[in-house]
Design a binder for these strands. Sequence first.
RNA 1: GCUGCUGUGGCACAGUCGGUAGCGCACCUCAUUGGUAGUGAGGAGGUCACCGGUUCGAUUCCGGUCAGCAGCUCCA
Length: 595
Amino acid sequence: MKILYNDGHVEECAKEMELEVLRHSTAHIMAQAVKRLYPDTHFAYGPATDNGFYYDMDLGDRALSDDDLTAIEDEMKKIVKENLPFKMFPLSREEAVQLMQERGETYKAEHIGDLPEDVVITFYQQGEYIDMCRGPHITYTKALKAFKLTGVSGAYWKNNKENKMLTRINGVAFFSKDELADYEKRMAEAKARDHRRIGRQMKLFMTDDLIGKGLPMFLPKGYAIWQQLEDYIKEKEQMLGYQHVMTPCVGTVGLYQTSGHWAHYKENMFPVMELEDEAFVLRPMNCPHHMMIYANQPHSYRDLPLRIGEIAHDFRFEPSGTLKGIERGRHFCQNDAHLFVTPEQIKEEVSSVVDLIFDVYKDFGITDYRCVLSLRDPEDKVKYYQDDEMWQRAETALRDVLKDLDIEFTEEIGEAAFYGPKLDVNVRPAVGAEYTLSTCQLDFCLPAKFDLKYIDSDSTEKTPVVLHRAILGSLDRFMAYLIEETKGNFPLWLAPVQIKVLSVSEKSLDYARKVYQTLRDEGLRVELDDRNEKIGYKIRSARQDEKVPYMIIVGEKEIEQNNISVRDRETNQTTAYSVEAFIEKVHQEIQNHSR
RNA sequence: GCUGCUGUGGCACAGUCGGUAGCGCACCUCAUUGGUAGUGAGGAGGUCACCGGUUCGAUUCCGGUCAGCAGCUCCA
């Protein structure tokens, strides 16, 4: 594909850049179509994205409907058919500003002011449409063969919520119609494994307006998974010397004033409850409680590291628009722990936390993640605790550990917690934006605020350092991730229903009940389908609705041979087992935690 | 929270250019006793999210509220 660069020359485009250029040019063509249909539209930014492009624009008071999008799409097709050439011309800064102002493009004019002095300001034009842009672009509109407008939403000018909200039209573009069809197929599949949908289908959790939005409730089958996760991670932690505690879901306002959370996050907390002479809030996090546990008794350096863990219920008043099933709710359960360590122990403890994270990911087969070293923005004097020396020390310490451990990571400025830098491990859900699954945060700040001490070997009082860490993050979110990764086909050890016994007919009912009871007595999560239905139908519903790992089919044949026929979810193969041999196999498999 | 879209039985959807609604799955009953992805017949279930307005009449049109979805912002 030939493209037009902003110095005017045309050249074959590097393969890896082609799609981006095509998509960005699609944004221009869309803008042209919009301008034809709604001449008083003013444009802001219109970049290429992962699968397509968007363009932010000011449409005045106009709201776009799906029909409007179709009309824009049709106009775009016309423009493609007209096969207009893309042309490029540069202008001086003054001329550029003047041209944009003449055309009413105030956002573009403002943008010129943000550009570096030495940059050459270029314009691209196809037909009657002119757009200030650094390019490069396709050479003719006919190069655009497969695109679709996917939706309209709002976005703030320059991503700042103080600014005017513009209309963003999103679209996708590909080289060919086949690729577009492929993309649409992938999107449909992603939607089908959205944890909210599967959660409802499999009866894992529910919400109800009368309970309140953002407050999911786990049903028996969802809670079965939950309990497995809780037991799993607590056992791992116990092996590593963690001690688990249980603390209340409320605390006084004073507690959060002491920690500093009050100043930063009170808008996102459920409002204060004032009773007798005290003021309480539902707790949004557990650090302060754990700090007080540490402070409950004096500590020697010999006690450290002290690892306090809790599967803790937290409440955050998240903005309504950010709620998303069990991925982000207003109540959730953290797999939280605070490690109280001496400065010398930081490296070893961070490294042990990182090991634990990856050990757990291995158990769950999680391979698609990204590590981020989240640093403070030194310019932001409001959000971050002000102590340059402390930040310097903490960020350097965390970075050094990550380097020593040979972990691949990117650094992101302004992503730190107010009290310290973080290592975040991020994943991408089936639908929606990337989020953090695990985190490990280095904190020199809260221990000082709570005046925590230990007596060092030289008999002097010193302040410990705290590592905040969450491995499964919140159990809710982790479960959301697992649902989407497995499409509800949980591994045997997690499956809410591990085994389903299906009777062929009434003649085998008694035998089926006996098998069912035997498995239940083994502590297995088993169900019996003794409905008056055909075996094919029972298999279908066990597969489709409940995604049961093992189906046991029992009929007259099995009674005669005193065995069971086991159908495997993965292979759809049926194998004959004695009940004892099957129990042995299943226990074995659960122990191994892998399939 | 902001912008936009959506809201019809438990679920997934039709439909009504204004005259109070249907299909499939699920559910219940009966018959069928069946062997590896849907046995047949019958039945029950909805004041079309809620509140107001327009109208002889609103599920349908208009306004508001609530909820869901997408994006933005945010995520200790």
